[in-house]
Design a protein around this nucleic acid. Structure first.
Length: 208
DNA sequence: TGCCAGGCCCTCTTTAGGGCCTT
């Protein structure tokens, strides 16, 4: 039995051939950072060959070309490695419902599972940063002046800035609401609160 | 040629519709 490391969370991001695994779309790149007590202790990045050509739109959107994917290992091989990387740690992604669909679909295909739960940085940001002009990853990076290298729509780069956004949200909850160490569970609860009850929830220390 | 999904959330809502997000 694999145990979940305390204060450990995996922030991940997929680049894919499209929006829906139910429509035949596959992952083409996975990037992730492992945070332990707020510090990046490990990273993962791999291209993977989906077995068919990706569209010109995806090549332009991600910068990942068919030539790059031709020499990449197949999805099944990479996802088996990634299943080992995430173990049973809890998971974070920006618009997590999207990444969860692809993670579930790709791991289903190789008979692997994971034991962690997902939290969504976008849903939490919508509640914490209600004045932000938008809640796209790039928009929030600009809004919160999060350090970045200017690369977007690549898996590791996006997972790195999502991790910084996650830590910024934890920091802001500590500073603005005196919540000493916001737990993963509290962040999940926050993402389910209505906008009008977020302030009450946070000022009560996450008890209401 | 043009379009394709799905979950969340708001409102001119709930017997619905549409915008936001992800690639």
């Amino acid at each position: 039995m694999t145990t979940r490391a305390a204060n450990s969370v995996i922030v991940l991001d997929f680049e894919t051939t499209g929006l829906s695994p139910n429509q035949g779309d596959r992952a083409i790149e996975i990037g992730a950072v492992k945070l332990q007590d707020g510090i990046v202790v490990d990273t993962f990045q791999e291209l993977m060959n989906p077995g068919f050509r990706v569209s010109g739109f995806i090549e332009g959107y991600t910068g990942i070309t068919n030539a790059m994917l031709n020499s990449a290992p197949p999805c099944n091989e990479v996802m088996a490695q990634f299943a080992g990387f995430i173990g049973n740690d809890n998971l974070v992604a920006h618009n997590a419902s999207f990444d969860k669909r692809f993670l579930d679909a790709e791991l289903d295909g190789i008979g692997r599972t994971y034991g962690g739960e997902f939290a969504c940085s976008m849903l939490i940001a919508r509640r914490l940063y209600q004045a932000a002009p938008n809640h796209k990853l790039g928009g929030l990076v600009e809004y919160k002046q999060i350090e970045n290298d200017g690369v977007f729509h690549r898996a590791l780069a996006d997972s790195e800035v999502t991790a910084k956004l996650w830590l910024k949200m934890l920091e802001d909850m500590q500073d603005d609401y005196q919540i000493a160490s916001p737990s993963f569970n509290l962040m999940q609860q926050l993402s389910k609160k209505s906008k009008s009850t977020v302030h009450t929830f946070l000022t009560s220390g996450g008890r209401r």
